[in-house]
Simulated assay, not measured.
Amino acid sequence: MRGLTLGVIALGALAGAASAEGCFGPGTPLFHCTLNGGTKAVDVCLQDDVAYYRFGPAGGAADILLARRAGAVDMRPWNGVGRSIFETATFSNGGYDYTVHYAIDRLTQAHEVTGGVIVTRGGDELADLSCDAGAVTVSDIYPLFEAKEAAGQCWNREMFRWGEC
């Protein structure tokens, strides 16, 4: 399969087009939160078989916007065990990995949702940014799982990794 080589997108035409949930036009918001007291936002969106990662000023042009075919995004589904429901999606770009994560505490009355983004390079953690308290407004990365399956990938529950079906 030919990979999508959009990499970091220059945002000229898209600068003001981002909705609060990070999708440009029709699409499925998978994750949204604000960070740093609401000054920054991180979003993950799925449009057809393309997943988008956006990080930057809330309501402004993105600092980073990555677009990848679903098959190229490393998505980790919840394993079905434990106190928290959690999922991750990792977007790679030029040696850097941007891992968006969220967790829902199943055992509290409020079902608190937390999340953030971890930036690594070569396995070294460069940043671990947590969403503002109560600021995760979209937290369902599972449609990316379905998009990966539609792309011919299967999740191996024993090995905890994706492979061909």
Rank of each mutant, 00 (worst) to 15 (best):
A72E: 12
I104R: 07
K40R: 15
R161G: 14
E149Y: 03
L66I: 05
V50H: 04
G94V: 06
D43N: 09
L144D: 00
R121M: 14
D63P: 02
V119E: 14
S139M: 12
T5M: 12
R161N: 12
G25H: 02
F145E: 10
Y98C: 08
G59M: 06
Y142V: 07
C33R: 01
C131N: 00
L144S: 00
T28W: 06
I118V: 15
D124N: 11
S139D: 13
F24Y: 05
P29F: 01
L35E: 06
L65I: 09
F55W: 15
L66E: 00
G82E: 05
G116Y: 01
T34L: 07
R161P: 12
G60D: 15
A147I: 01
T34D: 12
G116T: 00
E146P: 03
A127D: 11
E164A: 11
Y52F: 09
T114H: 01
A15M: 10
R2N: 09
T137R: 01
E164I: 10
A147N: 00
E158H: 08
W78V: 03
N79Q: 13
V81M: 14
H32Y: 05
A20D: 13
L35Y: 03
G60R: 14
Q47I: 13
L6R: 11
P26W: 12
E112K: 10
N79A: 13
T90W: 11
N36C: 08
C45A: 10
V100L: 00
T120D: 14
L66M: 00
T34M: 06
H101C: 11
T39S: 15
H32C: 02
D63Y: 08
C23L: 08
A18Q: 03
W78A: 09
L30S: 07
V42M: 08
H101N: 08
G16F: 13
A61L: 08
Y102W: 02
A61R: 05
Y96W: 07
G22F: 00
I104G: 09
L126K: 07
R68Y: 08
A89Q: 00
T88H: 05
L6Y: 06
L144F: 01
P29D: 02
C131A: 07
S92N: 15
L35A: 04
V138F: 05
G22C: 14
L6P: 05
P26H: 14
W78P: 09
D48N: 14
T5H: 07
L126F: 05
R54L: 04
